[in-house]
């Protein structure tokens, strides 16, 4: 089963994302900040997608994205930003760093599901 890692400092948001994705054949793993998220992503090894907040304590979502893309072991993990931020400069920075998408909160569950299906390549066989 493909792994989707949700990194957000709000426990309720993580639960909300998990509930929205419940219909999908994926394993959802939660992390409470960027630091914990990076460790979780490395431990998972082959995450199909990371859904990541931007404004978080310890390590921000942008810093986490930068760290992942700088390491050959994690650079190919797709990262979708899920945040209240919508400033074009920030979106541009995330895109240049290698994020695969940007979704602004409050999110519509059906849009999140469709984005995850596409970005995690659900329907393709896991090697």
């Amino acid at each position: 089963m493909k792994k989707v890692i949700v990194v957000d400092d709000s426990r309720v948001v993580r639960q909300q994302v998990r509930a929205a994705l419940a219909e999908l054949p994926i394993e959802v793993i939660e992390a409470a900040d960027g630091q914990e998220g990076e460790a979780t992503i490395r431990a998972a090894g082959n995450a199909a997608l990371v859904i990541c907040d931007v404004n978080m304590p310890l390590v921000s979502g942008i810093m986490l994205l930068r760290n992942l893309k700088a390491d050959p072991a994690t650079k190919d993990v797709p990262v979708l930003m899920l945040t209240t931020e919508g400033h074009p400069d920030l979106v541009r920075e995330a895109r240049q760093l290698g994020a695969v998408g940007w979704l602004v909160k409050p999110f519509k569950p059906n849009l999140l599901v469709e984005a995850v299906k596409k970005l995690a390549k659900l329907g393709e066989v896991t090697p």
């Binding site: 895109r95 695969v100 998408g101 909160k105 999110f107």
Partner: peptide, 12 residues
């Protein structure tokens, strides 16, 4: 112009 609004999604 150019700001993403609430609920909007942009896939790159």
């Amino acid at each position: 112009e150019g700001h993403l609004g609430p609920g909007e999604v942009s896939l790159f």
